[in-house]
Amino acid sequence: MKQLSSVAALAALLMLTAGCTTSGMEATGRPGADAEFAKHLVIYNEALASDVIIQDMNTRVTGGLLEVNVVLANLTGSDKKIQYRFSWYDDENFEVEAGAGNWTPLLLNGFAKKSMHALAPNPTVKTYKVNVREL
């Protein structure tokens, strides 16, 4: 009997280590912050949506290109390992260079704020969104 349970435990361990990794379901969340800021934030995780907000944002045009500085704040005491990506839109709300932007990893410590800076890829960009998801 002892031998049998050892073998079963071994099998369970093997299955655990060899098994495939599955990712969780992503859900669109709504940040509870200033409406003007919130419309620029897209969070792909329901739990994260209530924890992370845009606290401040500033934009300016440099050499014809939209320059954005966004301050992201963690409302909880636990560290958040996230990744973010800026998406850019022209004056007709078409995404500019869709899919070309890359995700950047970011560690947002408990109750910390971090600023993210980005420059639009070309002068046609008029507005932007910050996409956030768990790392």
């Binding site: 079963a8 093997l14 890359n102 950047t104």
Partner: peptide
């Protein structure tokens, strides 16, 4: 016992599956 060991190995082989999927080229 030999049969159980063989079953365990078989189960582990089944669990270690290979899957191919397209990922996000811009993802971390």
């Amino acid at each position: 016992t030999g049969l159980i060991v063989a079953s365990a190995v078989f189960a582990a082989t089944l669990a270690g599956c290979t899957s191919v999927k397209y990922g996000d080229a811009g993802g971390v």
